[in-house]
Computed example of a mutant assay.
Amino acid sequence: MNTTIEDWGHVEGQNIPVKLITLQNSHGLKVQVTNYGCIVTSIEAPDRDGQVADVVLGYESLEKYLSGHPFFGAIAGRYANRIRGGRYELDGTVYQLETNEPPTQQHLHGGSKGFDKYVWDFSIEEKPESTFVHFCRVSPDGESGYGGNLLVNHSIGLDELNQLHYRFKATTDKPTVVNLVNHSYYNLAGHDSGTVDGHLLKLHADFYTPVDETMIPTGEVNSVKGTALDFSVERKIGDGEFDHNLVLNQTNTEGDYRYAAELYDPASGRAMTVLTTQPAVQFYNGFKLSNKSWFGRNGHKYESREGLCLETQHFPDSPNQCHFPSTRLNPGEVFEEKTIHRFSTK
């Protein structure tokens, strides 16, 4: 394992300097992360012939991230995904959050200044078989409208088994809601190689949560059978429009983890298996990327469906849906979730 840390700039109004941290294992897998927004800026992975490509969408400079992006590689929180009308109630207290998604008028990914807009403290843990970057910050009571001082620890690690680890842990001093995810966009052919339409995908999910026209779950939990969301058997993604929460099966497990997704690019031979302790995964194939102009590394313009997200998570709008797995966190409890992205070739 090899680790380097370099200066990467400064965010106005925040005292912690921004760093770019590079993790590389002996198999040629290299991951770059920054303590601004806990962003994974780059994942360089070899194909079946040993040729390396960057398989996540992103930028080469802090300035580009500061100018705006659709959560490329960032942490989303305090509550990832959507909350209806930006409103939730705990023990008789109503919390009104920002409704920062203009098309739907819903609260999205923690608001216009969510966890992705802060510079985090961090430390490095190096072992022969793995290296972890441990990010931490306190989200104060009232930040973005949420209640409770929330101590958050987010660890991103790389190991010698070609596994990229995302670990979340949080505690609070009064009841709050928490849903934390990494929001990387993957293209196993390379970030500048065109659409992911030809990728093969299998999702370990037999059910999904339908949404209304404002992208909020209706409360139903329906079977994927007979729908375009049926990826229970590996198939091409195609050119559809996918942005859905799928409920993970309980049967396919490996230790503490359940299998969430298997992604494969036949052209390069790169494959990625996603395992998680979370109950669901948001599958988004980036069909809205063309709504704005995003120019990534080397000036490449990201068009519709050129990267896909597999966001392991709790369900959207869980604070307002009592039959969904709870996202409530009480004092004395620990929110803890883990996800692995395992890279390979075939």
Results as ranks from 00 to 15, higher is better:
122 F>Q: 12
89 E>Y: 15
98 E>Q: 12
120 W>N: 11
211 V>G: 06
167 R>C: 14
205 A>Q: 11
71 F>C: 15
176 T>I: 01
78 R>V: 09
88 Y>G: 05
78 R>N: 10
147 G>E: 01
87 R>N: 11
73 G>I: 12
80 A>P: 10
82 R>E: 09
119 V>Q: 05
201 L>K: 08
172 T>M: 00
111 G>P: 07
71 F>R: 12
184 S>Y: 00
173 D>S: 00
147 G>L: 05
134 H>N: 15
128 P>K: 06
159 D>L: 01
137 R>Y: 08
178 V>R: 00
86 G>I: 03
160 E>P: 02
189 A>T: 07
102 P>A: 08
88 Y>L: 07
202 K>L: 02
96 Q>L: 11
170 A>E: 00
204 H>G: 10
195 T>P: 07
172 T>L: 00
202 K>C: 03
192 D>Y: 03
126 E>H: 13
107 H>G: 00
127 K>F: 06
113 K>T: 10
115 F>C: 11
113 K>P: 07
189 A>C: 08
91 D>H: 10
200 L>D: 03
135 F>C: 07
134 H>K: 15
127 K>W: 04
73 G>V: 12
206 D>N: 13
204 H>P: 09
143 E>P: 08
140 P>I: 04
163 Q>H: 09
152 V>I: 15
130 S>D: 12
95 Y>L: 03
81 N>V: 04
143 E>T: 08
104 T>R: 05
79 Y>P: 11
98 E>W: 02
185 Y>I: 02
142 G>T: 07
